[in-house]
């Protein structure tokens, strides 16, 4: 089983539109996992039925029982996260700042603090319109542990793909270079980097590839909006040649990306010229993965 992860470093490069197109091309043969749990958008194109719905619990948050509390302030003294401000003359936990380390609960002299597990989001196992299943999630507002939720989405996807004997897992990865994208990348057999020839596109590609290298995963690159700046486009091509990254496709600037999305369609279902380019890169990915 091959696990293909699509990431971009920089947002707005067309990562999700391209991943959803691959999902259409791969059909029933692949399982889809949306690991961009912070701002998951794949469901807008693939029409999941949200059938299997499971609460996801992770991390803890402290709570002070005001009846028992003697207002000694020791909890606030040890808290490194400024999560116990005084509100209306009472020590109170700010759940958005609390990291759930439990230090305050441990040192409270009157045991007024309890730490409880938090529901951080929902996890779905859905059937989608391409004849397969998708694992996706919705992170609760302001919740932490998106890295853990990403790991959970991936593990569930892997288990289901094995059970249903799928050949591929296709992962829409998270942005950035931190915890969620680290979770997205672990276990991948091939990484697709989607970028654009802009100063920030180049900068973010180089940074995120540094991370990919640590995982020693083979990578391919899709340059979207390839014609908006020839100089930067060359810069990207020089970089990927130097790093032995496969050039999968150069997609010209095309507003049909947005038009397709507005119709709830993937690009391969909307524009025949773009379709040819994307089919071609999907074939390359299947060979390389």
């Amino acid at each position: 089983m091959k696990e293909i992860v699509v990431i971009s470093g920089k947002g707005g490069t067309g990562k999700t539109s391209i991943t959803a197109s691959f999902a259409v091309l791969g059909g029933a043969n692949l399982l889809v996992a949306d690991c961009d749990v912070d701002a998951a958008d794949m469901h807008l194109l693939l029409e999941p039925d949200f059938a299997g719905d499971e609460d996801f619990y992770s991390g803890e948050v402290a709570e002070i029982d005001q009846e028992t509390c003697i207002q000694c302030g020791k909890c606030a003294e040890v808290c490194r996260f400024d999560a116990i401000p005084v509100v209306d003359g009472k020590y109170t936990v700010d759940p958005l700042s609390c990291e759930g380390c439990g230090y305050c609960a441990r040192i409270c002299p009157v045991k007024a603090i309890t730490n409880s597990v938090q529901r951080v989001g929902n996890l779905y196992t859905s059937s989608i319109r391409t004849g397969t299943k998708m694992i996706h999630a919705k992170l609760g507002i302001g919740n932490e542990n998106s890295g853990k939720l990403v790991a959970k989405v991936k593990n569930d996807a892997k288990a289901l793909a094995e059970k249903e004997q799928k050949n591929y897992i296709l992962v829409d990865g998270s942005p950035g270079v931190g915890c969620p994208v680290v979770s997205s990348l672990s276990g991948a057999t091939f990484v697709v980097l989607v970028t654009e020839p802009t100063v920030s596109g180049v900068h973010d590609l180089i940074r995120v590839y540094e991370l990919v290298k640590k995982f020693k995963i083979n990578a391919g690159c899709i340059i979207n909006k390839a014609d908006i700046n020839p100089e930067r486009n060359r810069e990207i091509k020089d970089f990927i040649r130097k790093e032995s990254i496969t050039l999968l496709a150069e997609i010209p600037y095309n507003e049909n990306f947005t038009k397709a999305m507005t119709m709830g369609k993937t690009i391969v279902e909307f524009d025949s010229i773009l379709k040819k380019i994307i089919v071609d890169s999907w074939e390359k990915i299947k060979q390389k993965a």
């Binding site: 912070d38 701002a39 958008d41 807008l44 302001g142 998106s146 950035g176």
Partner: peptide
């Protein structure tokens, strides 16, 4: 970007937040 801890940390001290979006289904969602 996003809605989890990094963006909370970056916005919670602000007097005002400007949210920038694009008029597409992804942007809207």
């Amino acid at each position: 970007p996003g809605t989890s801890c990094p963006v909370i940390e970056a916005t919670k001290h602000a007097d005002i937040v400007i949210l920038i979006t694009e008029p597409t289904p992804f942007g809207f969602h």
